[in-house]
Write a protein that binds this DNA or RNA. Sequence first.
DNA 1: AGATCAAGTTTCACTATTTGAAACAAGATC
DNA 2: GATCTTGTTTCAAATAGTGAAACTTGATCT
Lengths: 259, 259
Amino acid sequence: MNIVRENDGTVGKALSALELVAAFERPVRFSEVLEHSPYPKATLYRFLQTLTNQGLLQYDPDQGVYSMGMRLVRLAHAAWRQSSLAPISRDVLDTLYAQVGQTIHLAQMDAGQVLYVEKRTAIRPVEMFSQAGKVGPAYCTGVGKAMLACLDDVTLEAALQKQAFYQHTQFTHADAETLKTELSQIQAEGFSYDREEHETGIICIAKAILLKGRPIGALSITTTTARHSFDDLNEWKQPLTKAVEQIAQAAKNWQFPTL
Amino acid sequence: MNIVRENDGTVGKALSALELVAAFERPVRFSEVLEHSPYPKATLYRFLQTLTNQGLLQYDPDQGVYSMGMRLVRLAHAAWRQSSLAPISRDVLDTLYAQVGQTIHLAQMDAGQVLYVEKRTAIRPVEMFSQAGKVGPAYCTGVGKAMLACLDDVTLEAALQKQAFYQHTQFTHADAETLKTELSQIQAEGFSYDREEHETGIICIAKAILLKGRPIGALSITTTTARHSFDDLNEWKQPLTKAVEQIAQAAKNWQFPTL
DNA sequence: AGATCAAGTTTCACTATTTGAAACAAGATC
DNA sequence: GATCTTGTTTCAAATAGTGAAACTTGATCT
């Protein structure tokens, strides 16, 4: 599940040090980061210093710990507005949510993983960022499989390399082979399903959003086995398709970074 | 209003190139960035290439434009969870919102500006990121002034240097002097007010959240002149104070990056 | 079609920054 | 007060960054 990016010089290395800190879900000491780092002490030390100066990290001198910096939040806001599908999909998602009344996720691909950029749900006025910015696996989520199914062979192979195939539930695909078989079905049918592959009791139907034949994102409707059967998911094919088409249409007019 | 960070080597320069792209609120061509850049053509070119490789930027070969990369969204999610006040303030904000029924903002300071990290509002089930990640001026917002009023002289001077003093409305402070006078009042009273200084018709009451005497954030309750008078704002002093105290209390137990 | 121009990309000798082993400092712990 | 752990600084060698200029590509004009 390791996300590897090519190492362009100092910038690439410094960013990989930043990811090290991000991987901890709490403020960390220098020595903790060092243990997980491929860099020598002095080098890592200078990286963290630089990142702190730049506001990508924060340093608390009292506790002697580093945590992720707020400058990232500001930059992400720009990214989210400028190049995610979320802003142009707002109205469509509102409408779809009004129609189906189930949890809805809008996702894109990032480094072989699924990145959630927007969500509608009944439960509480959700903490912002709780879902936007969150990542999930591609090989065992509805949105992930929907996008994978639309990739050309070369891109698909590259993406498959990045999958962890961790066995989340008894229904999770164990390897690339069985996954590929399902991807063909998804291609033929135009919809993908999550049949408790990621979390027990959670199922969903999803569909890719295409621009010039390439997947730029995916939309899913999620429910639980307690409330619905697999067959029930198909009731939402129509509104889901319509929403996907509307987002694709809106994306056409907006200069859009494709996968 | 230029946000200047010290330039630590290549990383700093590359990040300042990233900010150039962020400043445009749309995908941009290389030449457009170049016009606003202090770097020579070849240098900027390499920066944008590196940033693109790293996923901090996206490049659309069809349109020949750069936009902010989705990796930032992922990193920001980590930052927001790890070092913003938002996660620990959820319940407090829910309670406060239930009590006052007005728009609520939770903000922190970043590079002399106000950074909104959480919000509660009646209108729509929150667009994520719409407010979280957004920045605003410190010198003419309730949250901004509340935090400025708690700074020691040296830090305050540094922060004032970064203020633009753009005249948003007829009520906006025109310079550091009149602002300082108000900051003393705020210090004495413990509450700050926005009296249509940022937007005509919008007023608010705000209070800083302190940890070890230093402001780590601020909380505000916003309304309009159409619905409430300045005096009405004082009705919310009690619930606002309680919420601020509760957040400060929660922050104490969590290792927290101070300003 | 050919000429002209603008936008983007590559080259390469020159420079400046990064690197990391090792020495050093500052607290904690025994 | 000796020892260990954690964090910080140093400095010569190694590497990566710099940017003027040349080049490529594709659009626009005559």
